[in-house]
Computed example of a mutant assay.
Amino acid sequence: MNARRFPLVLTSTIKVPGMCGFRHISVVSPDKLWVSSRWILKQLDGTGHVIRTLDDKYKYDSVDGGHTVSVEGDLVFIAKVRDSVESTASDGLESRYGIHKMASDGSITTLLRTPDLFPISIHSSRINGDLLIGLANDSYPREGQVLRCDSTGKTIGNIKFDEEGEILYREPQYIMENRINGDIVVSDEWKEALVVVDRSGRHRFDYTGHSTDRSFRPSGVCTDLLGRILVSHSVTDDDWKYDFCISLLDQDGRFLTRLLTEQAGEFISMPLNVDDNYNIYVAYYEIVKIFR
């Protein structure tokens, strides 16, 4: 690869007792973040001290971007509810997933439910507070869409097709809004692409990896204050051994550089996020590393 490399500098690490297999990170502030494995969701400080754990009333079950932080600093997350009056299942769970919001005092309200599709990923806009929710059905091949709601859960619209009537998404696993231009950036491993649409839902481009990548399977995605896109993904070499990488793109999908390459054995996926001070949070299997 001929592009210049700008290696990241490790500044600190966070280890969370009793947690491993991290799947997603949502940053509240440089010293406060939410991290999740498939079934556990915890709020931490910068040293790894657990501030809060999601109550057992809510069944968190996500291998993708199942939580986000609002502009007010509140947690918004996808979960089923235990022991609900609407529950008919033997395990005491509602049959439908809901989108819930946790305020700073720990109180939780339900914003909406998605009866016909499975919510997979969620992002709270830093521009206007809207919620962007990645959804998919359970058919094969998968068909996905992005639902836009206001901060109270009222539906504004959805994004499903491009201008030719083709399905844009298969499984929108991680979702992010670019605060510079309002683009919606979705990581879709099933499609093996980053799918980018503008704020109105018009398809702009798919990014399917650098020309030297033998394969491209995206995972976590985020954007920084300059509107650049950071995407984690697996790559294979000539012997079909694979590593996880973080690539940096400009807002139009042009490859800029490879920020990080690590051995695949240290990850289940490679969730990442970036704060307003350009700290990059990367979740390994057992720890979270913070780079600059």
Results as ranks from 00 to 15, higher is better:
G18W: 09
L54V: 13
D61V: 05
S247K: 14
V9M: 07
H24R: 02
C20R: 14
G18R: 03
L272H: 05
S124E: 01
K42G: 01
M270R: 01
E192S: 13
D74A: 03
S37H: 02
D83T: 08
V81W: 00
L230S: 11
K101P: 00
Q173Y: 02
E94D: 15
G153D: 10
R170F: 15
D74I: 03
S234T: 08
H210A: 13
R228A: 07
A193C: 13
W34C: 10
R199L: 14
Y284Q: 09
I180H: 08
G201F: 04
S219Y: 11
G98I: 08
G65W: 01
V71G: 13
G66N: 10
P141I: 05
Y281C: 05
I127P: 06
T109G: 09
S139Y: 04
W39D: 12
S84L: 11
S87L: 05
I25L: 10
G220M: 06
R170M: 15
W240T: 08
N137P: 00
L194T: 01
G209S: 10
S215P: 07
R148A: 14
R199G: 04
E262T: 00
S234N: 08
D116P: 05
E189W: 06
Y60L: 13
R202Q: 14
D250A: 06
E94N: 09
L112E: 03
V63Y: 15
Y97R: 05
I268R: 13
P218Q: 08
L272C: 05
V235C: 10
